[in-house]
């Protein structure tokens, strides 16, 4: 079970993604954000920063595993647990 801080962190990431898509009001944890083009290759760099900001962790861009960024669920497992 995530702590309240971790929940707040992933919520920030969810809000960041939803902020870029005003037509959406929710984002399920298992939705593939890349395949559904919620984040394109330019926005991916911004997403990394948003996760760094929300998690307080620095992410090595050259060591990224894109699988970790597929969905809110994978992002939460990789960066907020």
């Amino acid at each position: 079970m995530s702590s309240s801080v971790d929940t707040q962190g992933i919520d920030k990431v969810r809000d960041w993604i939803l902020g870029r898509h005003p037509d959406r009001t929710e984002l399920a944890p298992d939705v593939n954000i890349i395949e559904n083009r919620l984040v394109d290759s330019l926005a991916f760099v911004e997403l990394v920063y948003a996760i760094e900001d929300a998690s307080g962790r620095e992410i090595d861009f050259d060591a990224i595993d894109v699988e970790d960024f597929q969905s809110l669920a994978t992002i939460e497992r990789a960066f907020f647990s």
Binding site: L42, V45, E46
Partner: peptide, 21 residues
């Protein structure tokens, strides 16, 4: 790439992401 993306990528809230690109 639309030119309108550049100011977004330069915004402080984005990192700024452009410095990583």
């Amino acid at each position: 790439v639309p030119l309108t993306r550049i100011p977004e990528l330069l915004a402080p809230a984005s990192g700024p992401a452009l410095h990583r690109m």
